[in-house]
Write a protein that binds this DNA or RNA. Structure first.
Length: 379
DNA sequence: AACTGATCCAACCGCTAAGTG
DNA sequence: GCACTTAGCGGTTGGATCAGT
């Protein structure tokens, strides 16, 4: 029984007490954090029994996940995070949790809120949700049938991908009352390099126009490689006869299949390690090391983002949707090419897992806290 | 200063999947 | 196989805040 921070109640939870709703108090937060320290995550319904908190387990889990757990990144999304969200949304749809898995320290709720706000604003302004070089998967079109960014509708900005100005931060007249990142100059337009948000990323080529693959169960239509241009599924590698070293959309050589194989191997390895009794005993090591929690296997699998913390099933599905390192690299390349950020100097940060980032890339992913000069989540 | 609308964000709700006996 | 419990996900809501009028 954790009695922490006052307000202790003898007739605590599950004991006929009316569960409290509404905003959490500091004392409640402290109590919940103390509970997690002592008992670990999970078994949220026990919080009510073991503490004075009159909150349902669901509420406790949410509070922990969205506000109390370590290594959460608070504050506005960086432009790079925004781009990643858009890219991920184009591939995954409203799979906020999966998207959050790709954005270390961000919660599904944050991403969802961000996207919904953006959706609302863009729809009101008649702007497309996606830049022309991102073609949303079918489920997106079903989800937002009125999306103006269809081949038949004119775009409000230049179509060549190389000169596309990304409408994330509008000019002052269009800028919402709260710009997302005040540190980012509103006048700066997002001129993407031709490679960024590359529609022809391995994953993008998996887009399915087949409703069988694009609906429900939401494996995000990425289950089977699909070439929109050829109208065929690129199943060769999946059938084991493998020549798929070329992206049929672009004609460019890719290492997609090797990456997928790597992902499969990694997923299997992880699945083995996660065939532990309890479901989702995750994030326990998040307390320890930001990189181990988020980028734990980068070095071993060429995969920037780790699948750590997922159940085998999630591994399986997520691996199909996880951005390839190529995508991330391009994202980072774009970032380092950005006039706003590039200063022509570069140093290298090497993580313990041999993930090498130059300082631009590192800064993009982990902006230094202005106040503390500390990297978020890194002690 | 008061009002209004837009935006942000925390929290809740309902549903579903997974785990357990 | 079934019922029940637990955890997680996605949708929605409502209060707080801000900017414009």
């Amino acid at each position: 029984m954790i009695v922490y921070g006052g307000g202790a109640s003898e007739e605590g939870g599950g004991r006929g007490v009316v569960l409290k709703k509404g905003p959490w108090t500091v004392a409640e937060d402290e109590t919940l954090a103390a509970y997690v320290r002592e008992y670990g995550e999970g078994n949220w319904n026990a919080v009510q029994k073991k503490t004075w908190l009159a909150r349902c387990g669901k509420s406790c889990r949410l509070r922990w996940a969205n506000h109390l757990r370590p290594n959460l990144r608070k504050g506005s999304f960086t432009p790079e995070e925004e781009r990643l969200i858009i890219q991920l949304h184009s591939q995954l749809g409203n799979k906020w949790a999966r998207m959050a898995a790709q954005l270390p320290g961000r919660t599904d709720n944050e991403i969802k809120n961000y996207w919904n706000t953006r959706l609302k604003r863009f729809q009101r302004q008649g702007l497309p949700l996606y830049p022309p070089d991102i073609s949303p998967n079918n489920h997106q079109q079903q989800m937002y049938p009125q999306q103006p960014n269809t081949p038949s509708s004119p775009l409000p900005f230049p179509t060549p991908a190389s000169s596309f100005t990304f409408p994330l931060l509008q000019p002052p007249s269009l800028c919402p009352k709260r710009c997302y990142n005040t540190a980012f100059s509103p006048k700066a337009s997002y001129t993407s390099s031709p490679t960024f948000l590359n529609t022809h990323s391995p994953l993008s080529s998996y887009q399915s126009t087949n409703p069988v693959y694009s609906m429900k169960h939401e494996l995000s239509s990425n289950q089977i490689p699909y070439s929109a241009s050829l109208g065929v599924y690129q199943v060769s590698k999946f059938l084991g006869n493998g020549d798929c070293n070329q992206n049929l959309n672009t004609g460019l050589p890719t290492n997609t299949c090797q990456l997928l194989e790597d992902l499969m191997e990694e997923a299997e390895a992880l699945a083995d390690s996660f065939r532990a009794p309890k479901r989702r005993q995750l994030m326990e090591d998040n307390n320890n090391n930001f990189f181990s929690g988020s980028f734990g296997h980068c070095g071993s699998s060429n995969n920037l983002f780790s699948l750590q913390g997922l159940t085998p099933k999630e591994d399986e599905s997520l691996q199909m949707n996880t951005m390839q390192d190529e995508d991330i690299t391009k994202l980072l390349d774009w970032g380092s090419e950005s006039e706003e950020i590039s200063n022509g100097q570069s140093s290298v940060v090497t993580t313990e897992n041999n993930l090498v980032l130059d300082d631009h890339q590192f800064a993009l992913l982990f902006p230094v806290d202005d106040d503390t000069n500390n990297l978020p989540g890194i002690c």
